[in-house]
Design a binder for these strands. Structure first.
Lengths: 233, 233
DNA sequence: CATCGTATCGAACGTTGTTCTATCGTATCG
DNA sequence: CGATACGATAGAACAACGTTCGATACGATG
């Protein structure tokens, strides 16, 4: 597919890309340094070519982001389809949601771009379908099924946008770890007026050193419990 | 507070701002044309001053966004504090969440920036506290309370980021209404293979012409049902 | 009147997404 | 085999953005 290029004589050689390589390198940039690192110039340099060449494959940065996102969502979809499956559709829904969330934990930038532009992001639609198929096994109305899947993706996204935020400079520098950064917040909260902020004081120890995955799983569990109640199983 | 400035003779008169006016005009820009419309140049023109002057009030655009967000969250907080309150903490949680979501429906850009940088955004913390105080009335552990409030804000944000997305050009132009745009999606979905996408076909009529508020309320209801179960009330 | 801190502003800088125009390489065709 | 068309690449330029710099005005204080 990719053309051979071994003219040994001097002179700038032309690079040859492919949709695959463009997306792979774009994802690599996102993985290594987050969304701000993905610029056309950085991507071009990585591909060993010019900036304008990328525009032959994508019409805009938005489309680049969409395609890159869908590229990795495809892998998530494969993972989800490989899930064993059980006789309880709600257990299966949980397993799918956890698989999706784990992927976002590994790639925090996904949280921001996932599920935008479902027209281009074909894999997002397939994932949506896979979730929905589990609701078909439940005794629900069409509207309830629609809302149930929306609720589950909402929980995933609502928990994921937290992760997608670019960490502050101190954390990126490595001078402060992520946990230390959160502990500073906790410390500031501890110094708040206990009369005015009784709840914050109640949960500050939970917040300090909390795990994002636990937080997500608890939120998911509440939604699934409500769904189970609604379906009467 | 604002200085008089009536030197009638020619010569460019100097503008005089205030933190309040900067934030108010910033919010006005966001309200009128969304996040992309808020640029330092547009804001300066609106304030009748120079670009660099804004930097006397905020250190960066990030801080401007944070302060603008917290500015309107303050109003939401006032609404929430004015809520009547009942003998059922879960009913109160629902009322608060709905109030918050309604504000985001009116100001879609809020969804993207709400609950980032809780250090600067003091009102977000107060709102967090107000939600949490309702969980203090429930028979839960500290961790359960922490997770419950996270779950509720997660549902709100997860439903809100949908709204925060900039509508495509056709919708902004007015050539196509928002509902027509969604109907096109629905139509495309209807033409999908029913064997491969049974769920999408099941819910396509629900999706077509669906209401974001209904969708949110259903998701919220599932979470609250789960919470009620957990608290045993 | 001199001085200092507050507040303002035009101009410039660097980076970004995007477009323009020119070119190269390869396959196709008369 | 040479001409041609098209897929693909690329440098340079453009407009818009956030941000910084240096100069300047204003009002209060000594």
């Amino acid at each position: 597919m990719t053309r051979l290029q071994n003219r040994s004589s001097g002179g700038r050689r032309r690079a040859s890309h492919s949709m695959e390589s463009v997306l792979t390198e774009a994802v690599a940039l996102l993985d290594e340094a987050g969304a701000p690192a993905l610029t056309f110039r950085a991507l071009a340099q990585r591909l060993g070519g010019g900036v304008a060449s990328i525009y032959w494959y994508v019409a805009s940065k938005e489309e680049l982001l969409d395609r890159a996102t869908d590229h990795v969502v495809g892998a998530v979809l494969t993972d989800i389809e490989a899930l064993p499956g059980s006789d309880d559709p709600i257990d299966d829904l949980r397993a799918m949601a956890v698989t999706l969330f784990d992927a976002i934990v590994r790639r925090p930038w996904l949280g921001t771009y996932f599920m935008r532009n479902t027209d281009i992001q074909g894999n997002a639609l397939r994932l949506y379908e896979k979730l929905g198929q589990q609701t078909l096994r439940l005794d629900l109305s069409a509207q309830q099924r629609f809302h149930a899947v929306s609720a589950i993706t909402g929980v995933v996204i609502g928990s994921a946008v937290d992760l997608g935020q670019e960490p502050p400079e101190e954390v990126l520098d490595g001078t402060v770890t992520h946990d230390e950064f959160l502990s500073r917040f906790a410390q500031a909260w501890r110094e708040l007026d206990p009369e005015e902020f009784p709840f914050v004081h109640e949960i500050v120890d939970e917040f300090d050193g909390h795990d994002d995955v636990d937080q997500f799983r608890s939120a998911l569990e509440l939604t699934l419990a409500g769904l189970r109640l609604q379906a009467g199983v």
